[in-house]
Computed example of a mutant assay.
Amino acid sequence: MKVGLITIGQSPRTDITKDIGPILQRAGIDYIECGALDNLSRVEIDSLGPESDKDYILVTKLLDGTEVKLSRSKIVERIQECISKLENQVEIIGLLCTGEFPELKSKRLLIEPSILLTKVVEALSPDISITILIPSADQERELREKWKDREGMIVIPISPYTSTPSDFRKRLKGVTADQLVVMDCIGYTLEMKRLVKNILKRPIILPRTLLASVISEVAE
Rank of each mutant, 00 (worst) to 15 (best):
T118M: 07
I79Q: 03
I186G: 02
P50H: 09
K173C: 13
K18P: 02
T189C: 06
V120L: 09
L96N: 02
G21Q: 14
L109H: 12
A137M: 04
L58G: 01
E191W: 12
V121K: 06
P160W: 09
P135A: 11
I75D: 02
V155K: 13
K61F: 02
P207E: 07
T98M: 15
E112S: 09
V218G: 03
P157A: 04
V196R: 08
V76W: 00
L190C: 12
S114I: 13
D149L: 10
V218I: 15
V196C: 11
W147H: 15
D38A: 15
L110N: 01
L124P: 00
G187R: 02
E217S: 01
M1I: 07
A137R: 15
C185R: 10
K148M: 15
V3L: 09
L95K: 04
I205S: 05
P203Y: 12
K146P: 12
R208T: 08
G174W: 14
T176I: 11
L190H: 07
Q89P: 01
R150T: 09
S71N: 11
I204N: 13
K18A: 15
P135I: 08
T209G: 07
T131H: 11
L195Q: 04
E140N: 02
P157T: 02
D64V: 12
S47H: 08
E87V: 07
T176K: 15
S129T: 13
T189Y: 00
I132N: 01
L200M: 03
T98H: 10
D149Y: 14
L206R: 01
T118Q: 14
R141Y: 09
E81W: 03
M183I: 03
K201H: 14
K107H: 02
I134R: 11
K197I: 04
G9Q: 10
G99R: 12
I92M: 04
R78H: 14
L24P: 00
N198T: 13
Q139A: 08
S47P: 04
L211A: 10
D178K: 15
L180N: 06
P113Y: 01
R194V: 06
E142G: 05
S73E: 03
E67P: 03
R202W: 12
L124N: 00
G28M: 10
P165G: 07
V196I: 15
Y31T: 07
V182T: 10
L48H: 07
R169K: 14
L195R: 11
N198H: 07
D46W: 11
I199C: 03
E122I: 06
D15W: 02
M192V: 03
E67N: 05
F168I: 13
L109Y: 04
E142M: 14
L109R: 09
R72N: 06
E142Q: 15
S163H: 10
I32Q: 02
I111D: 07
V181T: 04
L86Y: 00
V155W: 03
D15I: 01
K2Q: 04
M153P: 05
L180T: 05
S213M: 12
T7R: 04
I132K: 13
T209N: 06
V175Q: 01
K85S: 06
R141I: 08
L96I: 06
D167W: 14
T17F: 03
E33C: 00
S11E: 06
M153R: 11
S163P: 05
V121T: 08
E100Q: 12
